[in-house]
């Protein structure tokens, strides 16, 4: 029996299983040996200081950064065999909002994966997109140019785009960054609604104050996994101190020395 099969049997149909994952950007370690499991239907906060590797972990899950070692399974399979069940929401700043497109255009991009090569967007996709816009309460903006949106409206557009992907696991990179209060409330409402539908949502989050209110499951990360589990058990003073009380400076320095020795830039 290959190790892959063992892992599959072991993880069953869990939305997300991460085993011993290490990621480095040009020898500079960003994630060290991270292992965690996310149960179905949880609203998961991914929390840690700047440079803790939160975004990198999400990108590693969707195969966007190469990992040095380790395994990741989504619903028991490798990501590339299970793409349709995952919706990834990149950071809002990662795209050019001056791009010539309307809000509806952007939301429709969520359907492209399902459509495949050469197929055109049809009435069905358009209806799904309008429905997603309605759920994000921005249907009146459908025809608006994306360059005319506020930060909160941009984020709602991105989330509507993720909604039309009808996934079972949502990975959101800082959806709350620099949005207005009403958008934040709308996002929380959306996440709760998704949770009721047995979806699993993993959210990179920065604001510690809102953690116990928003999330029922928590992953604390600082290059290494500090703790993962139900928020009630994990969100403790001691764990937070471990997460935020200084990074793994020695490891980082050694990594930096390695990088320089091997002639990186």
């Amino acid at each position: 029996m290959s190790s892959e099969n063992v892992l599959e049997n072991f993880s069953g149909e869990l939305p997300l299983v991460v085993r011993d994952v290490t990621v480095a950007y040009q020898r500079k370690p960003v994630l060290w040996n991270v292992s965690l499991e996310i149960p179905t239907g949880k609203l998961v906060g991914l929390v840690g200081p700047n440079g803790a590797g939160k975004s990198t972990l999400l990108k590693a899950i969707v195969d966007m950064v190469p990992r040095i070692s380790g395994e990741i399974r989504v619903f028991g399979k490798a990501f590339r065999r299970n793409r349709k069940r995952i919706a990834y929401v990149p950071q809002r700043e990662s795209v050019d909002w001056d791009f010539p497109a309307t809000v509806l255009d952007v939301v429709l991009m969520g359907t492209y994966g399902e459509l495949g090569w050469f197929a055109r967007v049809g009435a069905k996709q358009r209806m799904a997109a309008m429905d997603a816009l309605r759920r994000m309460e921005i249907e009146h903006l459908a025809a608006r140019q994306i360059s005319q949106l506020s930060g909160g409206q941009q984020q709602r557009t991105f989330l509507a785009r993720a909604l039309v992907q009808t996934a079972d696991l949502y990975l959101m990179d800082e959806p709350f960054a620099a949005v207005d209060a009403s958008t934040e409330k709308a996002i929380v409402t959306l996440m709760r609604e998704l949770q009721r539908l047995e979806k699993t949502i993993v959210v990179v989050h920065h604001d510690l104050h809102t953690v116990p209110e928003y999330f029922d499951y928590l992953v604390l990360l600082n290059m290494r996994l500090v703790a993962a589990g139900p928020t009630k058990q994990v969100f403790t003073q001691k764990n937070l101190q471990k997460t935020y009380g200084g990074k793994l400076t020695l490891l980082e320095e050694i990594g930096e020395a390695m990088r320089l020795r091997e002639g990186g830039v």
């Binding site: 969707v62 966007m64 793409r83 995952i86 990834y88 990149p90 795209v95 497109a101 991009m109 492209y112």
Partner: peptide
């Protein structure tokens, strides 16, 4: 527009 989304969709 968004190569990250493109990649996550498998393009």
């Amino acid at each position: 527009f968004d190569q990250q989304l493109a990649r996550s969709q498998g393009w």
